[in-house]
Nucleic acid binder design. Sequence first.
DNA 1: CCGCCTTCCGAACGATCGTTAGCCTCCAAG
DNA 2: CTTGGAGGCTAACGATCGTTCGGAAGGCGG
Lengths: 190, 190
Amino acid sequence: MSARRSELTRAAARLFAEKGYHGTSVGDLAKALGVQKGSLYAHIESKADLLWEVASEGAAAFHAALDSVPEDAAPVDRIRDALRAHLRVVAEQLDVATVFVREWRYLEGERRDAFVAERRRYEERFRALFREGRELGQLRTDLDDGTAALLALSAANWAYTWLRPGSDTDALADRFTALLVDGMRGYATR
Amino acid sequence: MSARRSELTRAAARLFAEKGYHGTSVGDLAKALGVQKGSLYAHIESKADLLWEVASEGAAAFHAALDSVPEDAAPVDRIRDALRAHLRVVAEQLDVATVFVREWRYLEGERRDAFVAERRRYEERFRALFREGRELGQLRTDLDDGTAALLALSAANWAYTWLRPGSDTDALADRFTALLVDGMRGYATR
DNA sequence: CCGCCTTCCGAACGATCGTTAGCCTCCAAG
DNA sequence: CTTGGAGGCTAACGATCGTTCGGAAGGCGG
């Protein structure tokens, strides 16, 4: 992919995140590149292509982040690492993450279906961390792991609204993990 | 406000939630009422009025929900009640809640400023529950109440994406609260 | 019965939308 | 030296956007 084309994708991510997909016109994208809007069609077939591309980039980034979590570590450590990895993606690729979380729903047809499947798969991988943690006995055996995963995923998915680039996302993820593990009333058990 | 006008506001909430503010045309709104689009201007001055109205309705609903939390109850109970109240609003007014959480950012000018102030005030009221819980000693004294509030608010604000009308929101809120209080590893202390 | 108010229609407004077309320029590979 | 592709231009397309306007029903209070 040409350098110009990459610039276009980056501009699309930024503008879609800032003004929304339907709030961003092809003219806006052209202006961001300093070009007439008709010229963009040397690079794309339609505006929808850009949304698909940015959304796919987001899916790839989050899956790659989860891939970095070691499979043989202790469950609590894996949960902490998964949260670290997720928040790092959000902070380092905020525009892409925003499109991944909020703007994907303007995808249409089979692209939408394909994206939803990838998104569901990501959340399922996340959920599995909690289920395995309970099954392996490192988390309380009566844990409601579905609720725990939902709570963690809520924090992860909501992060794009408040997380700013440059934040110490590892520390943030560790605070979330500590709270999830020990709670607000319990006392440290280690 | 006339009955017809209320119908229009409800249709706007539904369509803005389903297709987004910029993805909803005045023609779409007119079709929902079975009317020509020009006819809507007997009720409103602009499309932006409807967004403002729905967003304001959401702010009022969430603040009213927090008002229902008794001030003299124990901190943990107040947190549980606040979560219950919030999730109940989401489930019972899903469209309005969706606009309140996601579509408000297309407000412009002083309306946007006013909304942001109301939203910040709501989150601040929520945060105070955790801070007071720590200060009053019912939560661990070394609690990171900012992180705890962020976690709870994330769950609350993300709920519109998965919560369906008719869910048992009280039970849901109780599960969230139990997890926040006791954690995934701790054992019940009562 | 009159006049007003609400509600809607049908038509049109200018602006902007996403997209296409034909033409031009530049540069690198053959 | 030629040629072809990449990238950009200007102009225009039909569609749709949010909004305005004049007129006309219909009901309701005076």
